Computed example of a mutant assay.
Amino acid sequence: MAHPNTKAKVESPMRVIDEIMSYNGVLKDVEELYKKMNLITNEANTRICQATELPPILVFSKEKEHL
């Protein structure tokens, strides 16, 4: 059984997958796919996380020096 505190961890990646799937069969070539993936990735990385109240890209940049 899933716990309420893990629900967002599962649903967040699914939102990105749903955005990718909406372009199924619509893209002309690999370059257009690359542009759409960059757009989706940038939007996902700048969206404010409810748990941390920070965008993931900011959290990653802080943690990156410790990796």
Rank of each mutant, 00 (worst) to 15 (best):
R15M: 01
V30L: 10
C49W: 14
P56F: 03
E43D: 10
T52W: 05
N45D: 07
N5C: 04
K9C: 06
L58N: 03
E43L: 05
N5R: 10
K62D: 08
E32C: 07
K62E: 08
E19A: 02
V30Q: 05
T41Q: 11
E31L: 11
K28Q: 11
A44W: 03
K7C: 06
I48R: 05
V30K: 12
M21G: 02
I20S: 00
F60Y: 14
N5V: 15
A51Y: 02
I17G: 02
P13V: 00
A51Q: 15
L58R: 08
E63M: 13
E43Q: 10
M14H: 09
E53K: 15
A8D: 14
F60N: 01
Y23D: 05
K64I: 06
A44L: 00
V30F: 03
K62S: 07
E11A: 03
Q50I: 07
V10D: 06
E65D: 02
K28C: 03
K28H: 08
K64Y: 15
T41Y: 06
M1Q: 10
M1K: 07
V10Q: 12
V16I: 12
S12V: 13
T6Q: 09
T46E: 01
N5E: 14
M21H: 09
N42Y: 05
G25A: 04
P55E: 15
E31N: 10
N42S: 08
T46W: 02
K9N: 09
C49A: 04
K64E: 15
E63L: 08
G25T: 07
V26H: 08
L33I: 06
M14K: 10
K36L: 00
Q50G: 15
F60L: 13
